[in-house]
Design a protein around this nucleic acid. Structure first.
Length: 421
RNA sequence: GGGAGUGUGGCGCAGUCGGUAAGCGCGCUGGGUUGUGGUCCCAGAGGUCGCGGGUUCGAGUCCCGUCGCUCCUCCCA
């Protein structure tokens, strides 16, 4: 084989499409029910949108971006996530002047240069929501239930919610100071990555999976002890709403997440039925991001979910029927003359909305019936010299095998009648 | 960035110690049915064993390299 799709970029094949459609349909439907409107931002942005928005020290920006210079010498980057673009669009189109609260959702491809594995590819697809303009903890809870509702409406039940608050920047500053003070003397025990993080991004040490790092972190300071009154109240509010909504969650004080823009609430929805890449949805509040992009201080919260991982689960659980559509009618032909007529017939039937197929492979009648069978045609219209002679067609019910003659004068009505009536 | 596994007709696989094993199932084509699918029976087409070197009298099998794929670590969607 000479040509392959680039590593980590995979084709979504027709046979997988029912799952993708199910996810897309459910996302749109649930989002609408929560009054979120779709927005589509470009698949690439100027590099600084992500570099500034997501954070220079994040894994995503420092080593996972598809960045290149365009012909004008501008540094462009394929979007690794959609929040930064959404905020850019929010400001560019001055939504702060149009509405007090912007509730958006999106659906589309994202790109991160990483080693592909189960549930992770370089081009992947996310659906997500952003609510810009309110710091109400009820909105955090809304986003969380929205994310969960999409999953449960698709038939997933065993999903868990991890929840944490990382406070506002000044809380975090105090916390990071103490964390570094705590870790510095224990530096030797940390993995080499974490030793580096101690200076670049100490918070990331918290969710390092290395056992020794975890051991050390376990007895260190806990971020939720550092929340200011505002942040504490906010966090309590989120938890209280979740309790009211009977959403189970696990408090994870070490959940900090990989993007710099988060403040206060952070959360992840995960599945135990997935492999190493078990996060289905990740999100949180980003109250500083609009301001960072040059807007007035504007609180916001959002989440994103991975479609590939969701499809993987749906396939495993067989929660979505593996086929869609199906043929209403197959028109079998015998010779050139009947094929001419079949082309015309087929077009008429398609016009009234019937999925119609015919032979393009010069198959025998036997072969054509087999083909019709394989595609689950409900009826096969047989059109041969005998039918043409009598100005009729033979309509075969593919389940019962019953056949009737139908006049070519009113075949559309008769076939529609059989299929619908 | 590290680690492990894997590559044999379209698909899923078997291939023993290196020695007529290039084989099975599904699918496909034709026939049984000169115009009738699903079950069944018969026949048939289809493979430079990922690629390139090497060892050997002899390589799908062993060695080296290379490309691809998969999974893990890490991070996350």
């Amino acid at each position: 084989m000479k040509y392959y799709a680039p590593k980590g970029l995979s084709d979504v094949l027709p046979e997988e499409m029912p799952y993708w459609h199910a996810v897309g349909d459910e996302v749109r439907s649930v989002m609408s029910s929560y009054n979120y409107s779709e927005i589509r931002t470009p698949m690439m942005e100027k590099t600084e949108v992500f570099a500034r928005g997501v954070g220079e020290n994040t894994d995503v920006v420092s080593k996972e971006m598809y960045t290149f210079d365009d012909k004008g010498g501008r540094s462009m980057t394929l979007r690794p996530e959609n929040t930064a673009s959404a905020v850019r669009a929010y400001l560019e189109h001055k939504f702060y002047g149009k509405e007090e609260l912007s509730k958006w959702y999106y659906l589309g491809p994202m790109f991160r240069y990483e080693a592909p594995q189960k549930g992770r590819s370089r081009q992947f697809h996310q659906y997500g929501a952003e609510a810009i303009g309110s710091n109400d903890p009820a909105l955090d809870a809304e986003l969380i239930t929205l994310a969960i509702d999409i999953l449960t409406s698709l038939g997933l039940e065993d999903v868990g919610l991890k929840l944490n608050s990382i406070g506002c920047p000044s809380d975090r500053e105090d916390y990071v100071d103490d964390l570094v003070d705590y870790l510095e003397p224990r530096k030797e025990g940390l993995c080499s990555d974490c030793q580096a993080r101690l200076t670049t991004n100490p918070l990331r040490i918290l969710d390092c999976k290395n056992e020794r790092c975890q051991e050390i972190v376990k007895d260190g300071p806990v971020i939720t002890d550092y929340l200011c009154t505002d942040c504490q109240e906010h966090f309590d509010g989120v938890k209280s709403y979740l309790n009211e909504l009977e959403i189970d969650y696990v408090l994870e004080p070490n959940l900090v997440r990989g993007l710099d823009y988060y403040t206060k609430t952070v959360f992840e929805v995960f599945s135990e039925d997935l492999g190493a890449q078990d996060a289905l949805v990740g999100g949180g509040r980003y109250d500083e991001l609009v301001e960072l992009f040059g807007g007035d201080p504007t609180p916001a919260v959002g989440f994103a979910g991975g479609i590939e991982r969701l499809v993987l689960l749906l396939e495993e659980l067989e929660r979505v029927s593996g086929s869609e559509g199906g043929l209403d009618l197959y028109i079998a032909t015998i010779d050139d003359e009947s094929k001419q007529a079949a082309m015309k017939l087929g077009r008429e039937l398609r016009k009234v909305g019937l999925a119609t197929e015919m032979d393009y492979l010069e198959k025998s009648l036997q072969g054509q019936l087999g083909y019709a069978d394989r595609y689950d045609a409900r009826y096969t219209a047989i059109l041969g010299p005998r039918e043409i002679e009598n100005d009729e067609l033979t309509l075969r019910d593919m389940e019962s095998g019953d056949q009737v003659k139908v006049s070519l004068d009113n075949y559309v009505e008769e076939i529609v009648e059989k299929l619908i009536g």
